[in-house]
């Protein structure tokens, strides 16, 4: 207003102040925040929601987990109950997915198989997350000669065909659910270790790490409280993509006779039992095969989607 007054005081000087209207930006409104601030995770979730295939994958996974938990209660059969006169029945109203060679309800066994296969995927991946993230984190954080030695060890283990080591471990420990968790968890952590180390190397030069160090955080706290939480994006992507790998490896082990012990049945066991009777009872192969394939697809779609959502720079 002073400008207006300054320009032509003769004409406007007598007018009251409220006769003027403010033109241009209003200081108070400029500071107003219209869009609420979004965190990294909200942002990632927003991006993920736009990805149709990834969301399909997520829904399929949630659906399968729900079936794994509640499914066995709904069918009215048990996974081990044999009714020999009902053996090898085709799908019907009584047995939606038919029965196997011992007259066990195929649908119930697939639900139980979902428990086993999904739990193997998740537990094995969490174990190799724990081992890999700690190993990679320590290697990256300590750096120097320690890092060099630790990564050389990883390089050498990388050269060893790990599938063979898993087979050997299973031969020695004997088949069984717990042994599969251990064998898969202890062998496949190398990828995770490399990724976490790379991230930690990049992060540890940043200011927030310096700040944390300055207020007296020790190495342990630095790693567990500051560095690893900040690499959660890549860790989650790797984790999601390693779950189908674990499910696949278990199914493959079952196929060569090293899976879980009877009468428990993972999807791999069910599929390999079915293949023998493929000519006469194709549904015994078809349903577990479909379950494995759908789960692997769902996790792969979700993993790809998460990678795009959590790390937009990598997007192609």
């Amino acid at each position: 207003m002073s400008i207006v007054n300054g320009v032509n005081p003769g004409v406007f000087g007598s007018l009251p102040d409220n006769a003027f209207e403010h033109v241009g930006p209003i200081p108070e409104e400029q500071n107003l925040i219209v869009r609420p601030p979004t965190t990294y995770w909200q942002d990632a979730w927003r991006r993920l929601k736009k990805n149709f295939l990834a969301m399909c994958g997520l829904y399929v996974i949630i659906f399968f987990i729900a079936l794994a938990i509640f499914g066995p209660m709904l069918t009215g059969y048990t996974y081990f109950g044999q009714v020999l006169q009902d053996a090898n029945k085709a799908p019907s109203l009584a047995h939606w997915f038919g029965t196997d060679h011992l007259g066990r309800d195929e649908l119930t066994r697939i639900f139980y198989g979902a428990r086993i296969s999904l739990s193997i995927g998740i537990v094995a991946s969490v174990i190799n997350l724990a081992v890999g993230a700690l190993y990679g984190g320590i290697s990256g954080l300590v750096g120097g000669r320690t890092d060099n030695v630790m990564m050389r060890i990883v390089d050498i283990i990388y050269g060893i065909p790990l599938q063979l080591v898993v087979i050997l471990l299973m031969v020695v420990m004997g088949s069984g659910l717990l042994n599969i968790y251990v064998a898969l968890g202890l062998v496949y952590w190398l990828g995770m270790a490399r990724i976490v180390r790379g991230q930690v190397l990049a992060l540890k030069e940043q200011e927030f790490v310096l700040a944390a160090r300055m207020v007296g955080a020790d190495q342990r706290r630095l790693l567990l409280r500051h560095l690893i939480p900040n690499t959660m994006g890549p860790i989650i992507v790797t984790l999601t993509l390693s779950i189908p790998q674990a499910i696949f490896t278990e199914a493959w082990l079952s196929f060569i006779g090293l899976g879980v012990a009877a009468p428990m049945a993972s999807w791999g066991v069910l599929a390999s039992e079915g293949v023998g009777g493929l000519r006469s009872y194709p549904w015994q192969t078809f349903f577990p095969a479909a379950a494995i394939s759908l789960t692997m697809l769902a996790f792969n779609f979700l993993g790809d989607g998460l990678r795009d959502a959590l790390d937009p720079r990598l997007r192609r």
């Binding site: 196929f255 599929a271 293949v275 493929l278 192969t285 095969a289 494995i292 394939s293 697809l297």
Partner: peptide, 9 residues
């Protein structure tokens, strides 16, 4: 996503 031991049968 579909393992070879499923493709084969």
């Amino acid at each position: 996503s579909v393992p070879s031991f499923i493709i084969a049968p």
